[in-house]
Each structure stands twice: as structure tokens, then as C-alpha cells.
Design a binder for these strands. Structure first.
Length: 295
DNA sequence: AGGATAGCCTGCGGGC
DNA sequence: TGCCCGCAGGCTATCC
């Protein structure tokens, strides 16, 4: 379940192996996980050069949960991990930890040696998109994303939340409003600043919006520093799991006592997603009307 | 037209 | 042991 921190860890570990290296060969095993576009933005069949064969990797990018490899000549590969995607690097001669569901392989050559980069995605909610330039990637995909969660400002979050009447948690999960926040970090951020997940997004007051923006940035950064959250499958491109799951205050802890007040954490379903919150630390906005309606 | 919902897909854990 | 079911969820298509 890679969200922004896991994607960032993946990007950082990929970058350490491929920046300045050359893609010697590409092996696309499942064509249907990849989409390619020409300079005019029209879809067309993926060719090896679209997947960066023969290119020098100049830099890596990330926006929200999507990452990209950019070559010296501009060709750009966008990678989305979806639910179960992994990008694994192995030095030449070392076997991949898992070989099933590997949909694409890149043979890498650099001054420090050779290796292979593998895109593996059992559930295939992720995928690859190739573009002739970074601008094309941004125009066709990333321009549809909201501001990156790691740097989102109070003003940006306020504008996003004001644009919808949905529950604030549903809004946080909408990548067009804020990019990079998924189910785990949405629950964690809302708990951190005492906002009920079902509160209407456009009715979160300015003070709490500012606290929420700050909490999102801090929680995502803290998770990156801890290597990301490994619940079951997540590992970075060196195969290492993260430990950010030990920092979770509410996610996966329904029925357990709140770390702050001891009240039992409640499970609910919101926007089709498992949601956990503390009924005391994250009260609904109108407790008085609830008391009255309950008699 | 915004918002809710169904569906994609595989692996795993619980229940029987 | 093994089967079936439910669940996990990022994102898109579709319906309301």
C-alpha cells in the first residue's frame, strides 16, 4: 500500500543506483501495464526506446504517489506502484527476491557496475507510462494532481478543502486535491489535529486547516525518515522494509485504547475505506445536537 | 456536475 | 488439509 513516503523511499533508493547510469536493455513482459504517447499526446504502442532503452538516466522525480525517471535526452518514464507495486534493484548476478508478477525489467550499466531494475506488481493496480519529455508527463498526468503532500501549504489545503462538500477524509484521499495521502496517513493526520474524519471538508475552520496541513507534512516526512510503512509487502528498491508502521497512532488499531486519552478507537467505513478515529480526541462538530437527539 | 458506487486484481487470513 | 469468503485499497469508469 505505497503512499507518498513509500514512493519517496523507492525513488531515493532507485536514484542511488540509476542516476548517471545507462539502460542497456528493456524487457517488457506484460504490454498491458504500460501506456505510451507520442509528442502530440496520442497513445501508441510501447517501443523499447519509450521505456528508456539506450538512454542515460539524468534524474528522478516524484509527485504524490507517482515517480518518474528522466533521461538526458528528455525521455521520461512514469511509474505508479498502485496497491502492490514494487521496483527492485539487484546487482548483476544476484537473483531477484521474487520473480512472479515481474512485468518489466531494465538492465542497468554504470561505472559502479551492472544490475537489473524490476517492476513487480501482483495486483496490477499500478503501471508504467512513457512520454517524450517531462513536460508531456506533467501536461498529461501530473497537472491533474493537487499539491504534493510533503510541501502542501495551509493556503493550498484550504483552497482544496473549500472546493468540496465531501467528508474531509474523502477529500484527503482525492489525489486531485492533495497528492500523496492515502488511507493510512489520512487517518493519522486527522487524528494528529483532532479532526473527525467525517466532518465536511468545506466546514473545517481555518485554524484546523492550518494544523492539518502541518500535520500532513510532518507525518509524511516522519514516515519517510522511518523508511516508510511496511504492513505486508512494501520494501524499497534495495529490498528493505520500513518501520513507520510502529509510529501509527490509529491506523490498524481499532478497538485498542487511544494513545492520548485511552478511549477505545472506533472503526468505521468512510469513502469505502476502513477508517479509525478516536471519538474523544476527534469529536464531531456539534456534540450538543447529538446529546439532544439521543434524548 | 459533484458525489457515490462498482470494478479491477491477487494474496492472505479466518471460519468451517 | 483445503476450500470459500471477505478484506485490503489506488484509481478509473459509470451511474445517479
Amino acid at each position: 500500500m505505497p503512499e507518498l513516503p513509500e514512493v519517496e523511499r523507492t525513488r531515493l533508493t532507485i536514484a542511488s543506483h540509476v542516476t548517471g547510469a545507462t539502460i542497456a536493455k528493456v524487457d517488457l513482459r506484460r504490454r498491458d501495464i504500460c501506456e505510451s504517447f507520442d509528442a502530440a499526446g496520442r497513445p501508441r504502442k510501447t517501443r523499447p526506446e519509450d521505456l528508456l532503452e539506450g538512454a542515460l538516466i539524468a534524474r528522478t522525480l516524484r509527485h504524490g504517489k507517482q515517480l518518474a525517471l528522466v533521461t538526458a535526452d528528455g525521455r521520461t518514464l512514469c511509474i505508479h506502484l498502485g496497491m502492490s507495486g514494487q521496483v527492485i534493484y539487484r546487482p548483476e548476478g544476484e537473483p531477484l527476491p521474487k520473480t512472479d508478477h515481474v512485468h518489466a525489467l531494465w538492465t542497468i550499466r554504470s561505472k559502479s557496475g551492472a544490475g537489473v531494475l524490476a517492476f513487480r506488481d501482483p495486483r496490477r493496480f499500478g503501471g508504467l507510462w512513457t512520454f517524450p519529455s517531462v513536460d508531456a508527463l506533467i501536461e498529461q498526468r501530473w497537472s491533474q494532481l493537487g499539491p504534493d503532500g510533503l510541501t502542501v501549504s495551509a493556503a493550498q489545503l484550504g483552497e482544496a478543502l473549500a472546493s468540496t462538500t465531501r467528508a474531509v477524509k474523502a477529500a484527503l484521499l482525492d489525489q486531485q486535491l492533495v497528492a500523496g495521502v492515502g488511507n493510512i496517513y489520512a487517518d493519522e493526520a486527522l487524528f494528529a489535529c483532532g479532526i473527525h474524519p467525517a466532518r465536511r471538508a468545506d466546514r473545517v475552520d481555518a485554524e484546523r486547516v492550518a494544523a492539518l496541513a502541518s500535520a500532513i507534512r510532518a507525518i509524511l516526512q516522519r514516515a519517510i525518515d522511518a523508511g516508510g510503512s511496511t504492513l505486508r509487502d512494501y520494501v524499497d528498491s534495495d529490498g528493505n522494509p520500513g518501520s513507520a508502521q510502529t509510529l501509527h497512532a490509529v491506523y490498524g488499531r481499532a478497538g485498542q485504547p487511544c494513545a492520548r486519552c485511552g478511549t477505545e478507537l472506533k472503526h468505521s467505513v468512510l469513502a469505502q475505506r476502513t477508517t479509525v478515529h478516536c471519538p474523544v480526541c476527534q469529536p464531531r462538530k456539534f456534540p450538543l445536537s447529538r446529546v439532544i437527539s439521543e434524548g
